Amino acid sequence: MSKLLQPLILTILMLNNLNCSGQQQQTTNTLVDGDRVANARQLVGEKLAQELTQKGLKPGAAIFIRAFKSEQQLEVWVQDSLQFRWFKTYHICKVPGELGPKRKEGDLQVPEGLYWIEVFNPQSSYHLSMGINYPNASDRILSDPKKPGGEIYIHGACGSVGCIPLTDEFIREVYLLALDAKTAGQEKIPVHIFPCRMTEQNKVNLLARNQPHLMPFWENLAEAYDFFVEKKVVPKYEVESNTGRYSIEKM
């Protein structure tokens, strides 16, 4: 083998093995792993509590997360009585891939769909991270049956191979909001990921992308988007076993 090719092949192998659990990329954070949550609370805990109180919201209340790939924005909504109220919007540092769902391991796509947080990782190499339940029931029907991919996280730092990086500064706040909601009893923290804000104009823009095979999927996601915009309540849904479609419960 040529000596010139060896470094290139090694680089390709390393990229193929990367995932958003952050097992290979290291941040510059030098804290002991067990101190990260405590350090985040020291740095931003009081500020978060004050901001929540100023908006008439309670620390530890249930939260809802929405992410928009095109706009590179992640919203946190906090429950107030039965409805949710907008609390804060964070910039997503980088969105790899293109608009469209994740369908195969290694496609570098950020998923699109209706998820929830299923794991907290305070020892991530991406500072702090929260894993979502990709592949969910819909993904398991619509994605590659053998290698749909996995380990999709909302995390710190700014690198991504299919996840949602917020930088260390922003992940501290989002992680604490989610952790406190979980500690207070919220079993499932919903995370809805969209290609963009599903406004009427953006739907036209999506149609103009000449990806007709994706339009039924995006129109289905728009049902969940519209439901929340109208009612400020996270929609309940089931996944149709034959189509992978989200069937939104009517209220």
Results as ranks from 00 to 15, higher is better:
residue 1 M to E: 06
residue 2 S to K: 12
residue 2 S to H: 14
residue 4 L to R: 12
residue 6 Q to W: 07
residue 8 L to E: 05
residue 10 L to Q: 06
residue 12 I to W: 13
residue 15 L to C: 04
residue 15 L to D: 14
residue 18 L to P: 08
residue 21 S to N: 13
residue 21 S to C: 10
residue 24 Q to K: 10
residue 28 T to Y: 14
residue 29 N to W: 12
residue 31 L to T: 07
residue 33 D to R: 05
residue 34 G to F: 14
residue 38 A to N: 12
residue 50 Q to S: 04
residue 51 E to M: 01
residue 51 E to R: 11
residue 52 L to P: 08
residue 53 T to E: 10
residue 53 T to M: 12
residue 54 Q to L: 04
residue 55 K to Y: 00
residue 58 K to H: 13
residue 59 P to M: 11
residue 59 P to E: 10
residue 60 G to N: 02
residue 62 A to Y: 13
residue 66 R to L: 12
residue 70 S to Q: 11
residue 72 Q to I: 02
residue 72 Q to K: 12
residue 73 Q to P: 01
residue 75 E to V: 10
residue 77 W to P: 02
residue 78 V to F: 06
residue 79 Q to R: 13
residue 83 Q to C: 09
residue 84 F to I: 00
residue 85 R to W: 00
residue 87 F to Q: 01
residue 88 K to F: 04
residue 88 K to H: 02
residue 90 Y to V: 04
residue 95 V to D: 08
residue 96 P to T: 15
residue 97 G to K: 15
residue 98 E to D: 14
residue 101 P to G: 03
residue 101 P to T: 09
residue 102 K to E: 10
residue 102 K to W: 01
residue 104 K to Y: 10
residue 105 E to D: 11
residue 107 D to H: 00
residue 108 L to A: 11
residue 114 L to M: 02
residue 116 W to T: 03
residue 117 I to V: 12
residue 117 I to F: 01
residue 120 F to P: 10
residue 121 N to L: 01
residue 121 N to K: 05
residue 124 S to R: 10
residue 124 S to M: 05
residue 125 S to M: 04
residue 126 Y to N: 07
residue 127 H to W: 10
residue 127 H to Q: 12
residue 129 S to Y: 05
residue 133 N to G: 08
residue 135 P to T: 03
residue 139 D to L: 01
residue 139 D to W: 06
residue 140 R to L: 15
residue 140 R to K: 15
residue 140 R to C: 11
residue 141 I to S: 04
residue 142 L to F: 06
residue 143 S to D: 07
residue 143 S to G: 02
residue 145 P to N: 01
residue 147 K to I: 05
residue 149 G to M: 03
residue 150 G to N: 02
residue 150 G to Y: 02
residue 152 I to K: 03
residue 153 Y to Q: 00
residue 154 I to F: 09
residue 156 G to A: 02
residue 156 G to R: 10
residue 158 C to Y: 13
residue 159 G to I: 06
residue 168 D to H: 05
residue 168 D to S: 09
residue 168 D to I: 03
residue 170 F to R: 15
residue 172 R to W: 15
residue 172 R to E: 15
residue 178 A to L: 11
residue 178 A to Q: 05
residue 181 A to C: 03
residue 182 K to V: 06
residue 183 T to P: 00
residue 184 A to S: 15
residue 185 G to E: 00
residue 191 V to M: 04
residue 192 H to E: 10
residue 193 I to H: 06
residue 194 F to R: 11
residue 195 P to A: 01
residue 198 M to C: 02
residue 199 T to Q: 13
residue 200 E to A: 14
residue 201 Q to N: 02
residue 203 K to Q: 13
residue 203 K to L: 13
residue 203 K to V: 08
residue 204 V to G: 09
residue 208 A to D: 05
residue 210 N to E: 10
residue 211 Q to K: 14
residue 213 H to K: 12
residue 217 F to K: 08
residue 219 E to C: 06
residue 219 E to K: 11
residue 220 N to K: 09
residue 220 N to F: 00
residue 220 N to W: 05
residue 220 N to I: 01
residue 223 E to Q: 15
residue 227 F to N: 07
residue 227 F to M: 00
residue 228 F to H: 02
residue 234 V to E: 00
residue 240 E to T: 01
residue 240 E to C: 06
residue 241 S to G: 06
residue 244 G to L: 04
residue 247 S to L: 03
